[in-house]
Design a protein around this nucleic acid. Structure first.
Length: 750
DNA sequence: AGCACGCCGACT
DNA sequence: GTCGGCGTGCTC
């Protein structure tokens, strides 16, 4: 801590790394538990050496024993009172696991304040891994000794054939040889197999930092040098790496990772990705660059895989982690660089449990711990662009596409002038273009960000709209399974033959298109073309999705009709036409970021078209051809769009020019909910620079039987929004059955 | 998060 | 008369 910080934060200066120790009451430590509790609890500690802050300990808490972490002593207040009033319990045990680094402890405290969730709830995200805090639990495995057994049998032969120098467990040997574990044990007795104790969580291969990367273009080299210099200075900077798809952002930040890891033999780096779908091909790329697979972290890992990554990260052995947003909470002892790839992606926003934005927290973590954070994107968020413009972030740009690939030629199809036939969704102009592509033997992609066959099922007779039970969500017809499905609640039912309200038979009508319906139209129009549909429904699981994507890459598909699963990270060399079936889809609803998101998504999708020799083309079907977003896409003028968008936000005082928080109230009882929301509005403190909007029903009012209402708090940028909110919440008395959640800087308004 | 304590409905 | 519903409150 430097002088200035000591002046600003005297209370921090007094709390050193070691926990407090009162002479009269004996050695004491504070312990934070991974429970939704706002503060740490004090305990006595009878061990010789006081466990340092960050240590994993277990202690009696209420009626049970809970594992927590030694926390910096609760600041001053009530300490003496506590010592007299309470007889403290004693820590029961200290775990072997390496203590959490002080920068992570600090980050947890900060993140709790920022998100307004209890500290313990943040700690829980760090500790979600089971059995990770005990030292390595050994597992018995076997290696071949090379000695021949006195008696050889066919079964023994089979087991010895699969045994080797690499330790394998009895179960693995049995599985590999098709024999039983009894044979394995017999061979141990015969001296042909030797028992060895192995760590069930093998270490990760070290990245080869001396391996030469690819030759960089001038732009890439400039960007890499710029970042390397900041890494060399060992200071925090948020740096936007800005370049279109194919401009080589990844190579640039790989160099940054190499530089950061080379600088310090204990340093660790984290690459955040928005989704797991991306990680499979991406992991291969990392392996190609560093000669070793990184430690992975995402929701699909098994328990054992999670434990392995967590433990190896905690002991500093895993030096490069590639993960989804929650990797931010891994127990790195010496994190020195975070890369946030596709920083604009809304998948970084965690919407359940503790609500947070991983990009924002990553920057905050780097700022507090003093290391650089790289934000990479072809379509950076307005937040980031404004931070660059106002000098808070650095930026390096990568112009042009690699290998001279051309940017696609984007045009708008005004559906008012070029209307499809009734019950059809493809305009004559788009049909012509696909025809041309088919005869040229080139691939086309039809993009529609809507799963299923039809988004709305309506009774022609009484007008009833099919919704999920207890929810105001529309059921989407999925014709492959002949079911009606709710995409919000997971509810599904066979498609009924009669309207459930008026009982009219055969009256339920599919309204609007989904990918399946566009595929139906395409198959009708081009019966000889090879047509595939790709969405998370048609490709359940990454394997089937890979298969379709590989087929597309190999040129085995003429027309791919896909949702946004095809928008990310794939390059199809023979794809020259992208048709966006409904470019207006994301614009409805009036979300403050609707235009921005539409720009990002459509620019990503249209960017799929094109290759080295020939520019691709993209056509956007729209009913609002004058809309600024679509004009910007057609002219390729991203910066003009961002400037206009920025101006609009500034006028309204919306982020990033103002702060926003959502206060959502939920209850199964609509009357109580309404009363609580209005009462809450009435108790809102009047403050300069703060405006309360609402309460209003959420766009999807009822979900799984729970009704929701929302208040929005809009504040000037210089207002401490969290302080205002906590003051407000203290004034509102809790209403029975009504739950309140806070979302600082909300992205989803559903 | 758990788990206990505490006040109102249908059963041995 | 009890068993049990989950609302409220506490855990050093």
């Amino acid at each position: 801590m430097n002088k200035m910080q000591q002046l600003l934060y005297p209370e921090l200066a007094s709390s050193a790394a070691a926990p407090s120790c009162d002479a009269d009451a004996g050695p004491r430590v504070s312990v934070l538990f991974p429970l939704p509790l706002p503060k740490a609890y004090d305990y006595l500690c009878d061990s010789e050496e006081l466990p340092p802050v960050g240590s994993f300990v277990s202690a009696p808490f209420g009626p049970r024993e809970v594992t927590g972490v030694v926390w910096p002593a609760n600041k001053g207040e009530a300490k003496k009172k506590n010592a007299k009033v309470q007889n403290l319990k004693t820590i029961s045990r200290v775990f072997d696991a390496p203590p959490l680094a002080s920068d992570l402890v600090d980050f947890i405290d900060w993140a709790a304040d920022y998100t307004m969730y209890p500290k313990g709830a943040i700690l829980r995200m760090v500790m979600r891994v089971k059995d990770a805090f005990d030292g390595p639990r050994m597992q018995t495995a076997f290696v071949a000794t090379g000695e021949k057994p006195a008696r050889i049998t066919p079964k023994r032969e089979a087991v010895l054939a699969v045994a080797g120098a690499e330790p394998q467990t009895a179960a693995q040997l049995a599985e590999a040889s098709g024999m039983s574990e009894a044979v394995v044990r017999g061979l141990v007795g015969a001296g042909s197999l030797a028992k060895v104790e192995v760590d069930p969580d093998p270490p990760f291969d070290a990245p080869d930092l001396m391996r030469a990367g690819p030759t960089l273009s001038g732009d890439q080299q400039y960007a890499a040098d710029f970042v390397a210099e900041i890494i060399a200075r060992d200071e925090h900077k948020a740096i936007l790496v800005d370049g279109v798809t194919g401009s080589g952002k990844t190579e640039v930040y790989f160099e940054a990772v190499a530089a950061a890891l080379r600088k310090d033999p204990d340093a660790q780096a984290l690459i955040l990705l928005p989704e797991i779908a991306l990680t499979l091909p991406f992991l291969e790329r990392v392996e190609a660059r560093f000669g070793a697979a990184p430690a992975p972290w995402h929701s699909e890992l098994t328990g054992a895989q999670r434990r392995r990554t967590w433990r190896r990260v905690a002991e500093g052995q895993a030096r490069l982690v590639v993960g989804a947003r929650s990797a931010l909470f891994l127990p790195f002892p010496k994190l020195k660089l975070i890369v946030v790839d596709e920083e604009h992606d809304s998948a970084y926003k965690q919407e359940e449990g503790v609500i947070y934005h991983a990009r924002d927290l990553a920057v905050a973590r780097g700022a507090r711990a003093g290391f650089p954070v790289l934000l990479a994107s072809a379509t950076p968020s307005l937040e980031t662009v404004v931070n660059v413009d106002e000098g808070r972030y650095e930026a390096v740009g990568l112009a042009g596409r690699f290998n001279d690939a051309q940017m696609p030629d984007i045009s708008l199809i005004d559906m008012r002038e070029d209307a499809p036939d009734a019950g059809k969704w493809l305009s004559p102009r788009l049909v012509d273009e696909i025809n041309a592509n088919l005869s040229a033997n080139e691939q086309s992609l039809l993009f529609l960000n809507r799963r299923g066959y039809a988004p709305l099922t309506l009774c022609r007779r009484c007008g009833h709209k099919m919704t999920a039970p207890g929810s105001d969500t529309m059921l989407v017809e999925h014709r492959f399974e002949n079911r009606l499905v709710c995409h919000h609640t997971g509810f599904s039912m066979p498609k009924p033959s009669a309207c459930p309200v008026c009982k009219a038979v055969e009256s339920l009508t599919a309204c609007g298109p989904g990918v399946e319906r566009v595929a139906e139209e395409a198959k009708e129009r081009w019966p000889d073309a090879r047509i595939e549909v790709l969405s998370s429904d048609t490709a359940p699981g990454p394997r089937t999705m890979r298969a379709v994507l590989d087929a597309m890459k190999a040129g085995e598909i003429d027309i791919l009709i896909a949702t946004q699963v095809a928008a990310k990270g794939h390059h199809f060399p023979n794809l020259t036409l992208v048709g966006v079936v409904d470019a207006d889809l994301g614009l409805a609803g009036g979300d403050l970021r609707a235009a921005e998101r539409t720009y990002q998504l459509l620019s990503q999708v249209t960017g799929r078209a094109g290759r080295a020799e020939k520019p691709g083309r993209a056509m956007l079907q729209t009913y609002q051809a004058d809309a600024a977003v679509l004009q910007a896409l057609a002219s390729g003028d991203r910066d003009a769009f961002l400037a206009a968008e920025a101006m609009g936000r500034q006028e309204l005082g919306f982020p990033p020019y103002g702060r926003l928080a959502a206060v959502t109230l939920r209850s199964p009882d609509e009357v109580a909910l309404d009363r609580a929301a209005n009462a809450m509005r009435a108790t809102a403190p009047v403050a300069d620079g703060i405006e309360i909007l609402g309460p209003a029903r959420t766009p999807i009012y009822r979900l799984r039987g729970i009704a929701r209402m929302r208040l929005l708090v809009k504040a000037r940028r210089n207002v401490n929004l969290q302080a205002y909110l906590s003051d407000w919440l203290k004034r509102t008395k809790s209403q029975s059955g009504v739950r309140i959640t806070l979302d600082i800087n909300p992205y989803s308004f559903m």
